[in-house]
Amino acid sequence: MTEIGKALPEDQITGHDSADVAPPTARVDAIAVGGQDLVAESATAAGLELKARSQWSYARSRFIRHRAAMAGLVGLIIIFAAGAFANWVAPYGYAQIDLTHLYAPPTLSGNHFFGTDELGRDFFSRTIYGIRTSEEVGLVVAIASSILGVIIGAIAGFYRGWIDNILMRITDLVLTLPALAILLTAAALWGSGNQWRIVIILALFFWTGIARIVRGVFLSLREKEYVEAAKAGGAGDFRIMFRHILPNTLGPVIVNATLAVAAAILTESALSFLGFGIKPPTPSLGVLISEGQQDPQKWWLTVLPGLVLVLIVVCVNFVGDGLRDALDPTQRRVRA
């Protein structure tokens, strides 16, 4: 997600209906923030001609001004790019053994920035391959669970009645389960160490938060006049749900999906660390840390991959906070 504008085509959002229901605070904020330079900008550029700016361009400028979020975004792009292009970035192969350099501490010679392990495998390269797995898990789980949550929340909020009742009871039930224990059980019994099975298990667990948010928005928006107008115009349920109401939930959904990336990466690494998640030979930061733990005196084997993990999560959280401020000004700034 480099820029919000790119991730979400403008025509999807600038429709009349979304402007209609933008929360009042969002508007006030947008005007206060962007109004002045908008006038100044276009006045100097083309006389007195005014250029229309969508909600999303306000959001974009709010995000760009958020320094921590931009720093997080840059950090995340660097880390994720390193992971995505691991084949080119990593100086050595993932399982390349070098028996002449066993247990080398971090050093610049031979590009062993993170040292080597008991088989002389370069830990920097292994970490980068681990990042690739983490980012795949994080992104796919976030996208899949958001889609699932949006569909369930939309159906529950739009149709209400018994469908809503059943779906929300299921959501409550998922929330009362001991999450880590259930995930561990599921991963132990069905995961079989496979990355994509773990992804599916995580996605099936992560949708509840988004479902609740989407349901809440749908419950209030389904009563609005523009929905009635759409209905009078002959729009079907499906069109009303996904074309008219859904765009208004995108702000919170995007924020939650971003934070879900961090949560999924952390959970996956914890499962893998405990030996129930992704198993070798698939590279995973959790597995690397658990292997490194065998020898406490070779501190770099545990500390450095963990540091990368912390860095990823901090960056994602910064981006999430920035997106929240940009897209959802009604929410509190401090995540609590």
Partner: peptide, 22 residues
């Protein structure tokens, strides 16, 4: 607290373990 929020529990535990073992 931001770091504590982002830190995987198992990594924090291992850091303490490594520190005191060493």
């Amino acid at each position: 607290s931001f770091l504590g929020y982002a830190m995987p529990t198992f990594w924090l535990a291992l850091l303490l373990q490594i520190l005191f073992t060493d």
